[in-house]
């Protein structure tokens, strides 16, 4: 059982999203940084589709009211337990009564807290994700507030094994015990290279200058950005002529341009359909990196081909699979 003492800026229950209902107009939602969410689940022996907590910019304070196995991934929110720092990207055994204190983010934008067993909220339309706009799923369809109580689902064999292993290593006096290994490279937030985009369906509707400036100039993520979309400014994009578009599907990663010329990158809570021309689509491999950018940050884009995006995704999934196998081997060693 987890008790929320302070909720932080925006803490929500998320999983891999609500699929199969987009033709009903229901948005996908789900973790913004899917990779961080998946890795957090793997570290505590959960299936990647279990629910985690997504914590944004300013983290919560959470009391763990039973012995538990947790892992934190994604942004660095300087987590501590009774003043002692704990590390991201590794399994941590916590004794009943431990209080995890997250702080202001040092790096990135969103951190994920997974707990062995997974967070037990009812599935709505086959998902535990919170849809903030439709007020459904997650914990009563809203972000968490103080005094909320979250229950934990049944442990997997992997979770049970890791708990007993770490419990044996903990001293009588320790409140927690961190595994002596962590996952490395794949989970690092890397801002050293641009966000890769493919041409969007209406790319040809834009002037040559705008097509070029999407990748030659920098954009800033404005304060009016949220889980639905990042509103960018700094560089207006214009169309060759004004033409009305017939609404069609949009999704997480679509870069659409309303008539004011300031692009919007649609994120995890993207609406299902839209009527603004789409100049670009973010490569799926870069969505996790994009999710770790926050209002005020700058974005550079660079073009890649559709084929390159596919190959990068296939390569990334191969690495993720290896990482999962690695985590399982470490946990059972």
């Amino acid at each position: 059982m987890l008790k929320i003492i302070k909720p932080g800026l925006l803490t929500t229950v998320q999983d891999l999203g609500r699929t199969g209902y987009r033709h009903h107009g229901v948005v996908s939602s789900g973790a913004m940084d899917r990779n961080a969410h998946r890795i957090a689940n793997w570290l505590v022996g959960n299936n990647e589709s279990n629910a985690t907590l997504e914590m944004t910019l300013m983290g919560p304070i959470i009391e763990v009211q039973e012995d538990a196995l947790v892992a934190i991934t994604g942004a660095d929110l300087s987590p501590t337990i009774f003043g002692k720092p704990i590390a991201n990207n590794r399994p941590i055994f916590l004794k009943k009564g431990s209080i995890i204190h997250f702080d202001r983010m040092k790096r990135g934008c969103r951190a994920y807290l997974a707990i062995g067993g997974g967070i037990n909220v009812p599935k709505v339309m086959n998902s535990r994700s919170t849809d903030l706009r439709a007020k459904l799923g997650g914990y009563h369809g809203r972000s968490l507030v103080a005094e909320d109580i979250l229950y934990i689902r049944k442990y997997s064999e992997h979770t049970k094994h890791t708990i007993s292993h770490l419990r044996n290593q903990a001293n009588q006096i320790d409140d927690f015990y961190q595994a002596d290994w962590s996952v490395g490279r794949v989970s690092k937030i890397d801002n050293t290279y641009p966000i890769r985009v493919m041409k969007g369906r209406q790319f040809d509707w834009f002037t040559k200058e705008s097509q070029a400036s999407l990748v030659n100039k920098q954009f800033r993520i404005t304060a009016a950005s949220n889980r639905m979309g990042y509103r960018l400014d700094g560089n207006k994009l214009s169309q060759l002529k004004s033409q009305e578009m017939i609404s069609e599907a949009v999704r997480f990663g679509t870069v659409q341009v309303p008539s004011d010329g300031n692009p919007i990158v649609l994120m995890a809570d993207s609406q299902t359909t839209g009527g603004y021309p789409k100049i670009a689509e973010v490569a799926t491999v870069d969505l996790s990196r994009l999710a770790q950018k926050k209002p005020g940050d700058m974005i550079d884009f660079t073009w890649i081909t559709h084929k390159e995006a596919e190959q990068l995704l296939i390569k990334q999934e191969r690495e993720m699979k290896q990482l999962l196998v690695g985590v399982q081997l470490r946990s059972y060693r």
């Binding site: 699929t19 199969g20 033709h23 017939i246 069609e248 359909t273």
Partner: peptide, 21 residues
């Protein structure tokens, strides 16, 4: 095939490229 979204003049099919391969 994950899902598809019919619109006025189009249908968008969302698929899992790793599973396709």
């Amino acid at each position: 095939i994950i899902e598809y979204i019919p619109a006025f003049t189009s249908i968008t099919v969302i698929y899992d490229p790793v599973q396709v391969l």
